[in-house]
Nucleic acid binder design. Sequence first.
DNA 1: ACGGTTTCTGAAAGCGCTTTCAGATAGCCA
DNA 2: TGGCTATCTGAAAGCGCTTTCAGAAACCGT
Lengths: 350, 350
Amino acid sequence: MLGVPEEILEPLSRSPVARDVAHRAGVSTATVSRVLNGSAGVRADKRAAVMRAAQDLGFVANGAARALSTRRFMAVGAVVPNIENEAFVRVLSSFQERLRQAGYTLVAANAGYDLEDELREATFLLERGVDGLMLVGDIHHPDLHARIARHGIPMVQTFSLSRERPCVGFDNAASAARAANYLVDLGHRRIGVISGLRKDNDRGGARVTGIAQALEARGLRLAPEHDIEISYGIGGGRDGFRQMLAGGPPPTAIICGTDQIAFGAMIEARARGLDVPGDLSVIGHNDSDFAPFLDPALTTIRIHSAEIGHAAGDHLIARMQGRPVVRLTQIDAELILRASTAPPRKPDGV
Amino acid sequence: MLGVPEEILEPLSRSPVARDVAHRAGVSTATVSRVLNGSAGVRADKRAAVMRAAQDLGFVANGAARALSTRRFMAVGAVVPNIENEAFVRVLSSFQERLRQAGYTLVAANAGYDLEDELREATFLLERGVDGLMLVGDIHHPDLHARIARHGIPMVQTFSLSRERPCVGFDNAASAARAANYLVDLGHRRIGVISGLRKDNDRGGARVTGIAQALEARGLRLAPEHDIEISYGIGGGRDGFRQMLAGGPPPTAIICGTDQIAFGAMIEARARGLDVPGDLSVIGHNDSDFAPFLDPALTTIRIHSAEIGHAAGDHLIARMQGRPVVRLTQIDAELILRASTAPPRKPDGV
DNA sequence: ACGGTTTCTGAAAGCGCTTTCAGATAGCCA
DNA sequence: TGGCTATCTGAAAGCGCTTTCAGAAACCGT
């Protein structure tokens, strides 16, 4: 009573091919193809017969044969540094949404912040025959662009802007600088940074640079002991803040590379009896779903991931279809003010 | 000085094919193929010549042609309910790891907890020619299995166990029941549940059922007003707990469908002046990365996502290679005890 | 140095689809 | 109804690779 055993359909000799449909409908494979695709100019009765036959047989065109014949695979690849990172997942998700609408499949790969690995994964996708490629950031293996070019497919890079390559992103330095300026405006003078690993990661690097420059422009500086680099995560945030406190006079405000890091830093601050935002203002990055629910709610730089994904998708689709595109799409990040930032308790003279 | 313009490689006539390599190496395409693949029995000098030529030309075999010829696509599909859900991402990630090692590509799709959409996405992957398919859960569109069978490819379902289909997962009901029993052992008598949407989601449903049965076995019951269904997320957890409090005497403990929900419920509890775990014990699901860092640290049911992904990958690879496999792999979830659970402050008589 | 093996190698036949090209049909006007 | 154009349709030629099959080359023992 639990339904037919699975094997009943299994040995179905071989899946039907276009010729089977053609036979059954009494037409040629050419007509079958015409009906199932472009469908231009096939007489109504034949069309119906083909549809019917295809239906009956449960015909599904063989993708490889089609790809070989049309020389288009209808798939695009994406290589992201970390598929478990919320921001990238959101981009992939919205990217896929667009692609799917246009009939493309997304094939995503994970490169783990390593240039060699990224090259390997991208090559793998290229071999598979993807029709386009999405990359993250502006730092890649020296061979990567040549390989992509050799395949003659379009690529777009996301998150960072670039003069040289088509891109969809924002100015990491500028938006981090905005956060820094906001803190300075509030009266903070000793401002720290806890970022994730910056090696081969232009986003992280640009953010710190942006902050340092903003501070300098205001006559302040990012002290080396307040510039901490950790591996991502809540635990990293705790460690990072602990480390920062070990290095001289504590900052009155910190900017963190992710909301997870900010969360960790806040936990550590509380454990040390520091009040947020009274003793320490905290700013995160990404506006993760939990950010508004922290105590206090986290001020953060919101990256419009969904829009980046959509724009990257639109860009690639347009190019694959030979339509004109703009090379650079800027989607600015936004500073979301919440309760984790406030003027320092006793304004520091410089 | 910024490097050569991008166009320099772009119009590279056409990417090299096996015949070009063959020419250059002075052999036939058959030999090229032999060298680049199975490589059995080709004289060393010819082999070297072919390698050399392939290298020089930057030859990359056309995947579609290869797939068409071998009738194997070297890709497997996965359809998950929500690609932004941590648990699924972790499974995909470890699943991909295994596949990648075996030379397969993972193509993942998002079905959004809707059976029709799942069918659509799976069909899409099937059309693409995937050699295997991973699904989540035990509830699917009635046509789905027939379609998969028609393609003659193996599939494996994850997270839920099944008598009828190959699967890798755990007994959702049993592990939730274990959590319930633990709470009862602590002395709790009024236990509530906040789960995500259960429609077309056997995992969620099984968990609640498991809890209800466990309570009944101990002479208790899951009161309808303590059985709340919400859409996932922290906000949902807050709403859910609020709703629960509105329905009569409050529970002294709750089990939540995810750690996010638990987080939300804890926030709401605190907002209402309830102490966790003094007034309310909370158990989550998944052991998300933030769980140990909540205040108090969250007791939760840890799902060994990485192991599920690995096992599912191994299973599929074995079947695609025609090796024997076990149909059912059980990877039990584990109750991780932390600080969010404790005996109720004043033990309730039943 | 020769026949018999054994090892290599290339020609050619697909894999299943799309698409061109020319022939077959249908449609139209006088 | 005949001739001409406009539509449809099928045969056949690929797409670029793998793989079979049979012939060529290399190797062996005597």
